[in-house]
Amino acid sequence: MTVTATAAASGANATERFKSDKFVGVAGTPPERVSLLAREVLEAVHGTIRKHKVSYAEYNALKAWLIAVGEDGEWPLFLDVWVEHVVEEVATEHRAGNKGTIEGPYYVPDAPERGARGSVPARDDEPGTPLTWTGRVTSTDGRTLAGAKIELWHADADGFYSQFAPGIPEWNLRASFTADESGRFEIHTVRPAPYQIPTDGACGKLIAAAGWHAWRPAHLHVKVSAPGHELLTAQLYFPGDEHNDDDIASAVKPELLLAPRPVEGGEAIDYGFVLDPERS
């Protein structure tokens, strides 16, 4: 029996993964900091209500929608699409090395290791143009970062991610690579396609009600790390995609655009990483 992927299923999986992998409380955070952030968020909401004379009908519709976001398991999707890009911007504004962008809700640690040169796990009939990616990892002072780790994951041609949608092999289009003694790596995968974020849940209802589109441009997700250096999380994009300029997640930056070139049997890109040392 074929199981169809849905927003509710992917959202619920993302929520459970987040709670098990990343949740940390505010233990150790000064109460003054918690109070400051909570009050200013609430004051921003209050200001919007006053400015636009929000009615009780609109307020109750908001309450119902917020409940639906939770029931559909779409809080990770909502926050990662509409909020995370600003958090990332603030958190990395000091960096001199590569630009990063949002992680999104579908990262999974401990993907299969493929060494310095290898292919991501994929189905025999995996759709998509074959893509060869070469690059080098260095520090901001020019030092080679041998042994740097490059984690790669991306959606399939239908816009679904392994481990979050049914019917896809566990590690499909997910792998880790380790830069060689020269800091170099070579990755073989397929070029991903643009896709719409799930629209059959509460986030989709917001998109429809607001008259927005739900499209994300084609992108490769990466995390790049090396001892003594800050973790870089990024998405890499392809020129010419019609949604590079109006990405629903507002995550595209000019520095993250690739320059693919045609080669026999597919395409090739060269894109390396410069990591910032950890701040003392």
Rank of each mutant, 00 (worst) to 15 (best):
N13E: 09
N13G: 12
A14T: 02
T15S: 13
E16T: 05
R17K: 14
K19T: 04
S20E: 01
D21R: 03
V24W: 01
G25E: 05
G25Y: 02
A27R: 07
G28I: 03
P30F: 02
P30C: 01
P31H: 11
P31W: 11
E32T: 15
E32D: 15
R33A: 15
V34S: 06
S35L: 14
R39M: 11
E40L: 11
E40K: 11
V41N: 02
L42M: 09
V45F: 14
V45L: 14
H46M: 12
G47W: 09
G47E: 02
R50Y: 01
K51F: 05
H52L: 06
K53G: 07
S55M: 03
Y56E: 11
A57N: 12
E58S: 13
E58W: 01
N60C: 00
N60G: 03
A61I: 07
L62W: 07
K63L: 14
W65N: 06
L66V: 14
V69F: 07
V69Q: 03
V69H: 05
G70V: 00
G70I: 06
D72N: 15
G73V: 07
G73T: 08
E74D: 15
E74Q: 15
W75T: 10
P76T: 05
L79M: 14
V81I: 13
W82P: 02
V83W: 11
H85P: 09
V87P: 04
V87Q: 09
E88C: 12
R95Y: 08
R95A: 13
R95M: 03
G97Y: 04
T101C: 13
I102Y: 02
G104V: 04
Y106L: 09
Y107T: 03
V108Q: 10
P109T: 02
D110H: 10
E113R: 13
R114T: 09
A116H: 12
R117A: 15
R117N: 14
G118S: 10
G118T: 04
G118I: 06
G118Q: 07
G118M: 10
V120N: 11
P121D: 10
A122P: 03
A122C: 04
A122D: 12
R123F: 00
R123Y: 06
D124Y: 13
D125K: 14
D125M: 02
E126R: 07
E126G: 06
E126N: 08
G128K: 09
P130R: 03
L131P: 01
L131D: 00
L131N: 01
T134C: 00
T138C: 01
T138V: 13
S139I: 00
S139L: 00
S139M: 04
T140C: 12
T140K: 00
T140W: 05
T140V: 15
D141R: 13
D141T: 13
G142M: 07
G142Y: 09
R143C: 01
R143P: 02
